[in-house]
Nucleic acid binder design. Structure first.
Length: 594
RNA sequence: GGGGCCGUAGCUCAAUUGGUUAGAGUCCCGGACUGUCGAUCCGGAGGUUGCGGGUUCGAUCCCCGUCGGCCUCGCCA
């Protein structure tokens, strides 16, 4: 070891000890006579003093030190003179009187300092990630990530789970997300796909008798990125046999409780609350609602039908919905101009044709540009329905159910943030259950699996699997933390016939199904136990428990929105020779258009 | 593929209605200073205003294109 201690460990108790520290120069203060260095490593900072006692040569060398130089210092741990103790540093009672200095690596003037107040641009941070990762905030996040993963591993090991690794090079299954493909050198024209998740492998493991499986699994999806989405991400993948959904939920409940306690000191009451998908859509317009605050969606379709207001009436008569939210006390905070902004917001991105609004005046009456289309009596009914009080702002969207969901969900989320309806430090955990088995794809007029094609329908819904797929509910459950999908799972089909039936509903011929999933259909006939599981998004857990709003800050080497790594410049060109081995030819853009 | 925001000194930002020599803090360089901890003080260096084109007497500012970063819709079984 080059060092005897870290920069975060020395205290008054070690005064008098001769120590050697290594680290980065965090800052330097040259006073001519004496010179001070804060030496930094991931454990903390320690002040190093260079004075005439250090010797002329050492002091001279110290004078040349600059930020981010990597040095080794030897010296005695000393009490700081009275009045110079620094309470901001955990090591602030002591300092090292340096007698020997070695510069291990001189740092060029860096493009930015890990210690600077103003955050540098994200492109620069990603390009020089080694500098960015030196920032204490990044180091804390990666240490938190490490703790979370360890906690998960410990927890599942205690419960007799076995960690099994599954292949990274697999077979493409064109359902779901776009695959990352890897060309085969041995089989020209054939490709591996990187796993979107280890789904089928873990199911096969259940059939193989490994009835409690866990893996920290890297997953790949070639889709566009978002603040909370990376093309490669990490899941805690779990699968269990001879269980029902309550067993899986129970296991995860326990993990949530322990994590919240150990990381946040929060006492989470179990079982975590559960809400059905239908209820969530009705009350919040989304399958991952943020339950840290109220402002629920209110239905007023029946009242809208009574109005002389054509927009409302037409929507109600067409069987669509008129719904809204009541932003308590927000009437004064939203001027006409700001409401116009909200209108633009819901119409540009969420397909709403407009945003109707009422302000509840001091006299308790609802005021609005559209109020003249309503009788006094009807306005009073709206007021009651939305439980409006003076100062409240009611915002209403009239449209297809799905549009009201999207627009009001977005509006609710935005207003809650703007009105500070929740404490950002607060955490809320819940389950959304009983998702639909299928979504109807308008474009292709086909049923598509809402979760994945291996999801088991509820036993009571088996009968209308064929007759009314849209009504069929799955044994599915999503873990929602603060309005973010933090995990999702299902019980799986363990019956060959049901699995074939579902494949059929998804538009696969028996031949298609055999070609793509023959191994699964086979395995289901050789002793497949009832099983189910879940996958937790580890990056998102880190984000949520770390109070961060960006998944890139939870990952050591993330990709930009265009899926590039600015440090290594991946993806990059490859040699002609490599392509030849793979029998791959790159088309020019104009050739591709054909 | 669509919508939006941003790009000015190494870094973080400013620059009046389109106007004359593009500024500040920090970093960097030189100097001063015996207790600082966002050290202080003095001096200095540092600019293809992302790139290309256009409008104009004149463009950091307006227009078009392009590159890059971010947010978002679609997409994400």
């Amino acid at each position: 070891m080059l060092r005897t201690h870290t920069c975060g460990e020395l205290r008054a108790a070690q005064i008098g000890l001769e120590v050697t520290l290594c680290g980065w120069v965090d800052s330097y203060r040259d006073h001519g006579g004496g010179l001070f260095i804060d030496l930094r490593d991931r454990y903390g900072k320690t002040q190093v003093v260079f004075s005439p006692e250090s010797g002329a040569a050492v002091q001279e060398a110290a004078r040349g030190l600059r930020n981010e130089d990597v040095i080794k210092v030897r010296g005695q741990v000393s009490a700081r003179p009275a009045g110079t103790v620094n309470p901001k540093l955990i090591t602030g009672e002591i300092e090292i009187r340096c007698v020997e200095l070695e510069i291990l690596n001189k740092c060029k003037t860096p493009p930015f300092l890990p210690t600077q107040q103003d955050m540098p641009g994200e492109d620069l941070r990603l390009k020089h990630r080694y500098l960015d990762l030196r920032r204490p905030a990044m180091q804390e996040t990666l240490m938190l990530r490490s703790r979370i993963i360890k906690m998960m591993r410990d927890y599942f090991e205690e419960q007799q789970f076995i960690d099994v690794e599954t292949p990274i090079l697999g077979r493409s299954t064109p359902e779901g997300a776009r695959d990352y493909l890897v060309p085969s050198r041995v089989h020209h024209g054939h490709f591996y796909a990187l796993p979107q998740s280890p789904q089928l492998y873990k199911q096969i493991l259940m059939m193989a008798g490994y009835d409690r499986y866990v893996q920290v699994a890297r997953c790949f999806r070639d889709e566009d990125l978002r603040a909370d989405r990376q093309p490669e991400f990490t899941q805690l993948d779990v699968e269990m046999a001879f269980v029902d959904k309550d067993d899986v939920i129970g296991i995860i409940d326990g993990l949530v409780q322990r994590t919240a306690k150990e990381l946040k000191g929060l006492d989470v009451q179990l079982p975590l609350p559960q809400m059905t998908y239908d209820e969530a859509m009705e009350r919040f317009g989304h399958d991952a609602p943020d339950l840290r605050f109220g402002m629920e969606l209110v239905d007023a379709t029946d009242l809208a039908a009574e109005a002389e207001f054509r927009v409302f009436k037409a929507v109600a008569e067409a069987g669509n919905r008129v719904r809204g939210i009541n932003a308590k006390g927000a009437a004064d905070k939203y001027s006409r101009r700001l409401i116009d902004e909200l209108t633009e917001f819901v119409s540009n991105d969420f397909g709403a044709k407009g945003l109707a609004w009422f302000k509840c005046e001091a006299d308790g009456k609802l005021a609005s540009p559209i109020a003249k289309n309503f009788t006094e009596e009807l306005l009073a009914k709206f007021k009651d329905r939305f439980e409006a009080e003076p100062g409240d702002l009611i915002l209403i969207v009239a449209d297809k159910f799905s549009v009201t969901c999207k627009a009001l969900y977005a509006l609710r989320k935005r207003l809650a943030a703007e009105l500070k309806l929740y404490d950002p430090k607060q955490m809320h955990f819940s389950w959304i259950v009983e998702f639909p088995m299928f979504d109807h794809d308008e474009e292709t007029d086909r049923w598509v699996a809402m979760h994945h094609p291996f999801t088991a329908p509820r036993p009571q819904d088996l009968e209308h699997l064929e007759s009314d797929p849209g009504k069929c509910r799955a044994v599915a459950y999503d873990l929602v933390i603060n309005g973010s999908e933090a995990g999702g799972g299902t019980m799986r089909i363990h019956d060959n016939k049901v699995q074939q039936q579902v494949f059929g509903l998804l538009g696969m011929t028996p031949e298609d199904a055999k070609e793509r999933f023959g191994f699964l259909l086979d395995a289901l006939q050789y002793g497949a136990p009832p099983h189910g599981g879940i996958a937790l998004g580890i990056d998102r857990w880190v984000m949520l428990f770390g109070g961060l709003d960006n998944i890139r800050d939870c990952i050591a080497f993330p990709k930009t929105q265009r899926a590039a790594d600015l440090m290594t410049d991946a993806p990059g060109n490859v040699d002609r020779k490599q392509l030849d081995e793979l029998a791959i030819k790159i088309l020019r853009p104009e050739e591709l258009k054909k």
